[in-house]
């Protein structure tokens, strides 16, 4: 009989290395596996996996299942899904962790259906129920204004985990683990969609996800102009990229790549300066991991002040230029 006790992580490789999300999942998974007294395994699927399996062991895995298959070139989700299903059929797991992201969003639900298990989406906190050894996951719902704590009544669960909810473990190259190769033999017919073109529309400069300071604007700015004027001036003075709320993107003031929130990017800067953002929970879902939030808003009752550490109640047209000027003076 197969042992359906392990915690398994769906690993991803980025530029030849274990992705940041995978390292975080290893930290989550390590804690769960230790509580359960079981092993932590990781599935790695790619055209070529390189040193990633060894990295996985160094970051906390006990076992790495490796599938290198030509069909995984450019990582079509259907191929990754098919390969992962194959691994999990051979080595069933009690808890499967998948990083929330482009790949995770495509495959998690489909995998859960194929494994006949439940799916917990967008989890921010994971623990084991000591009474029945089941996973309990906490996740924001209703645009982040409520938290649901869920479990799966069956004997296994697929959990999609939000990024930056944990720090990766310290890399330890002396850790020992077992690396097994799994034959893919993936059939090309499993790929049902075809990517015919790829277009980049990225905003220039520092990526929002990597920035330590972000200046973000909302509907309260009244129009697109400040994104090329006062807001941009502050951002430049701070060496920060510009972000925006969904309302601003919907209005067409800035492109989608600026959007921060539930349906946009998730950011975790040290300093998040908001101007004219009301603080709807949909927006906060994307920036609540910021260390310090600053709110500049003329409505002192705005929700954003509940999340902010520092606030100025006033007209941004007056506050912003003075703030920028002082920032420049401080150098």
């Amino acid at each position: 009989m197969t042992n359906k006790q392990d915690v398994l992580i769906a690993g991803e490789i980025q530029e030849g290395q274990l992705s940041q999300g995978t390292k975080e999942l290893l930290a989550h998974g390590r804690a769960l596996a230790d509580t359960l007294g079981e092993e932590l395994s990781l599935a790695l699927l790619a055209e070529e996996v390189g040193d990633a399996p060894k990295e996985a062991i160094a970051f906390g895995a006990d076992k790495a299942y490796v599938m290198a298959d030509p069909l995984l070139k450019n990582m079509p989700p259907e191929a990754y899904l098919g390969g992962l299903e194959k691994i999990l059929t051979q080595y069933p797991a009690k808890v499967v962790l998948i990083a929330k992201g482009p790949m995770g969003s495509e495959i998690a639900g489909r995998l859960a259906f194929r494994l006949d298990t439940g799916i917990a989406q967008d989890c921010i906190n994971l623990r084991i129920d000591s009474s029945n050894k089941r996973l309990i996951a906490e996740r924001p719902v209703y645009g982040g204004s409520c938290i649901a704590s869920v479990t799966c009544s069956g004997d296994s669960i697929v959990a999609v985990v939000r990024g930056k909810t944990i720090e990766p473990l310290e890399r330890d190259d002396s850790r020992k683990g077992k690396i097994s190769e799994i034959t893919g033999n993936l059939n090309p017919s499993i790929i049902q969609t075809k990517i015919t073109n790829e277009v980049e529309e990225a905003s220039e400069g520092i990526r929002l996800e990597d920035a330590s300071i972000i200046v973000a604007g909302g509907r309260g700015l009244g129009g697109p102009e400040p994104f090329e004027g006062e807001l941009l001036a502050l951002a430049k003075a701070l060496g920060a990229p510009l972000g925006a709320s969904r309302a601003v993107v919907d209005a067409g003031w800035v492109p989608y790549s600026y959007q921060i929130g539930l349906t946009g990017k998730t950011v975790t800067p040290d300093l998040y300066i908001t101007i004219g953002i009301s603080g709807a929970s949909q927006h906060m879902a994307g920036c609540s991991g910021s260390k310090v939030i600053v709110a500049i808003n003329k409505d002192g009752e705005a929700n954003i002040f509940k999340d902010a550490r520092y606030g100025v109640v006033g007209d941004w047209k007056k506050v912003l230029p003075a703030l920028t000027e002082q920032v420049k003076k401080l150098g």
Partner: peptide, 8 residues
Amino acid sequence: PKLEILDL
């Protein structure tokens, strides 16, 4: 449902 809501 396969998923059980323990708390909201």
